[in-house]
Design a protein around this nucleic acid. Structure first.
Lengths: 206, 206
DNA sequence: ACATGGATCTGAACGACGTCAAGATAATCT
DNA sequence: AGATTATCTTGACGTCGTTCAGATCCATGT
């Protein structure tokens, strides 16, 4: 009874895995990805360096849990952006801007989400199964009125995703600063780049 | 005179920095980026763990040298691709395909080139000053016959680069395997995605 | 010719890291 | 209650990046 009342405190610490993921996210936000060591996470959670191994088989598995939360958060942001835009024309661009802004606002988390030092050639299932990826696909499908073959739809989604991811990784390059100013802010810059991509031109023509 | 004749052997080892970069690239190719420790590089070069510090101020500086060579190699590949395509229409797509193929064929090197754990928000000058970036820009300018404003040209280049980089990072995801087969190979898949991007649609309309 | 000096390498060491094995402790089960 | 299982700590191992004091080698000036 040394701990304050918690909903369920099944064991010594009380949902340590939850606390570890939170600690990891805290470190990511405050000190960046370079400082994200397993020992640091344990320290931040007030626990010995070996404790995490009872909840995650190794560091990678902890990072995977963190990444998972990132995908959920991204999903939420995209849903908001999608419901906000009433104009079907700008909905795609809005989705793209929201995506890149998420990466800009959570750079460390975004890095962990795409970190492939654990699973080399597979993207998180959560992304493809029922997550952000599907939102993009659905938006494209919506906009084209479902007149597009499944293969073309898949290709267009991949294309859009690549463009967004590429831009997300480059947005913080300081070389673009003058261009951003010239266009009147970062969001305007994003929109301009997306317009130049002319995404879905092929679909529009068809 | 214990060493075989070398062109210039100014000091004990004879151009150790050169040997270190080579060793690093060898390790990258054979064991991947995870195995690329400074000590491993020194070991591979047959030298003590502290020796590299007389040629590079830290590990990051060695990686920068490796990345630099990567950019040079990429530049070369893009030049080849550009000179090969005679059809001005397909030249852009060809450039994109060449870019992604470079990333696919040198995944570890490509990762080092874009590794931002050292310099957070700045891309290598070599890329922008007179390298691959300019090749893309020039190709776009060529194709549009120089009728494009400098700002639009810059934006289109950024857009193209983002698309290429995004695709380069995703190309190896195994989730795309069935799609690749359906389209008749990886290159066909790449071309299809690039077509769906409809890059430069805006420029074409103008 | 030979000493001086600076560049280059070695060896040993430090702290931090990921991980594991053995023991202690606390919750659960019977 | 006693036995069992899950959880956490302690301590250790090997590896890593980095530093520092010395050893070694080369170029140079006298």
């Amino acid at each position: 009874m040394t701990q304050p009342a918690a909903d369920s405190r099944p064991y010594h610490h009380g949902d340590l895995s939850r606390a570890l993921v939170d600690a990891a996210r805290r470190i990511l936000e405050t000190e960046g990805p370079a400082a994200l060591s397993l020992r640091a996470v344990a320290r931040e959670a007030g626990v010995s360096p070996a404790a995490p191994y009872h909840h995650f088989k190794d560091k990678g598995e902890l990072l995977e849990a963190v990444a998972h939360e990132g995908w959920v958060a991204l999903d939420k942001r995209l849903t908001e952006a999608r419901s906000k835009a009433t104009d079907s024309k700008d909905r795609m661009t809005g989705l793209g801007v929201a995506y890149v802004c998420f990466a800009r606002d959570n750079p460390a988390l975004y890095r962990v989400m795409y970190d492939r030092s654990r699973d080399k050639d597979s993207l998180p299932e959560q992304m493809k199964e029922e997550g952000a990826y599907c939102q993009v696909r659905d938006t494209i499908d919506e906009r084209t009125g479902g007149t597009v073959s499944p293969i073309d739809l898949e290709l267009a989604t991949i294309a859009a995703w690549c463009a967004g991811h590429g831009l997300a990784e480059m947005i913080s390059f300081k070389q673009f600063a003058p261009l951003k100013e010239m266009l009147g802010g970062e969001e305007a810059f994003l929109r301009a780049v997306f317009e130049h991509l002319g995404m879905f031109a092929k679909l529009d023509q068809a």
